[in-house]
Design a protein around this nucleic acid. Sequence first.
DNA 1: TAGATTGTTAATCGATTAACAATC
DNA 2: TAGATTGTTAATCGATTAACAATC
Lengths: 212, 212
Amino acid sequence: MEEKEISQAVVGRLPRYFRYLGELKDEGIERVSSQELSDIMQVTASQIRQDLNNFGGFGQQGYGYNVGFLYDEIGKILGLHREHNLIIVGAGHLGQALFNYMNFERRGFIFRGIFDNDPQVCGRKIRGVMVRPMDEMESFVRENDIDIAVLTIPKASAVEVAEQLVGCGIKGIWNFAHVDLRVPDRIQVENVHLSDSLMKLSYNLSSRACEK
Amino acid sequence: MEEKEISQAVVGRLPRYFRYLGELKDEGIERVSSQELSDIMQVTASQIRQDLNNFGGFGQQGYGYNVGFLYDEIGKILGLHREHNLIIVGAGHLGQALFNYMNFERRGFIFRGIFDNDPQVCGRKIRGVMVRPMDEMESFVRENDIDIAVLTIPKASAVEVAEQLVGCGIKGIWNFAHVDLRVPDRIQVENVHLSDSLMKLSYNLSSRACEK
DNA sequence: TAGATTGTTAATCGATTAACAATC
DNA sequence: TAGATTGTTAATCGATTAACAATC
């Protein structure tokens, strides 16, 4: 679809643009200039124009950007115009928390199933959906056109489960397990390493404390 | 403590070094060269040496790095040698999931309390700890030497709660709410925007699908 | 038309990689 | 001592910012 490869730095900023444009839209604001967005979002107007122009000319000289239009376009770029079928692997607290969070479904990320290997947990219902045993996972993925697997299992089992998922045709893995998964290039992995994030915060707390 | 400001790009890589060194240590490996680490971690040896040298010369020419020593040093740089007192604000599924996750406590991040404004939830016990009402939060932070607040509340209330926290002397905020908090420079904010992360994954799925 | 603001090119800045002298 | 590998400087690459001509 696009000619040149877009850098992950740019991709990482798109959801934030999307969020702010959504807020402007909700406030009933119709047009916005890169300078106005710059003031609100605390990034340079230059970066905003540069980022958006990776995907096409969404603005108009002398006018700026139409909020609703730009919002929709970024939504499409992010792939939010189509539905994704997800499963959650690991019905622990975190898995259940994600499963219960309704906002993902509003954006088209539909949780189709949740799996766990603990017999105590299997069969229990979450939001009316039964937790399934792990040995049903592979057939479930194949039969229900599952795109994305959310990995909320301990690191010990994550590598093996990821391999199974790759084997049965998953396209993306949202990985909350504290390991780096090695998967073929065609599979997308997005990591959420919570403890890394907390350590970063810890670093910034100590470095600031000493500095001043 | 340090002379020059360390870039967040470097800080972001420290927890990963820490993790791999921990694994090597557990395997009983005593020394490692930047080249060996490079092979394992899939980053350049040059970057590893460059990163580490921001904090001092931890290696030895002709030998490499002592795994245990380097592990401890990075731990100290990350501030893991001292305890942090945390509270969780928002006892929903996510807040509870974080509260229940024991690995943070092992690293010295101790959850001292959990708060919620829902009277239905307050008074309930999680891991033997009572959920407290929000109006006790400020005095609790002051009296219990709380460093870090974990914000797992809806975006609507996050800005206001963050202001309260700043007012009663919090040092860092681990923000899971889907807003950008504006706080004074001395306060550190580390954002975990889960929906942004999922959108990035979605983008990468669509862009790859078209490309090939 | 004149003013505003984009799209885009050029300049700057910072981060990554390569190279090698220092040294264990 | 000779070999290995760091610490560090120099070169490259990429990302951000500035500037401005194009154009609505």
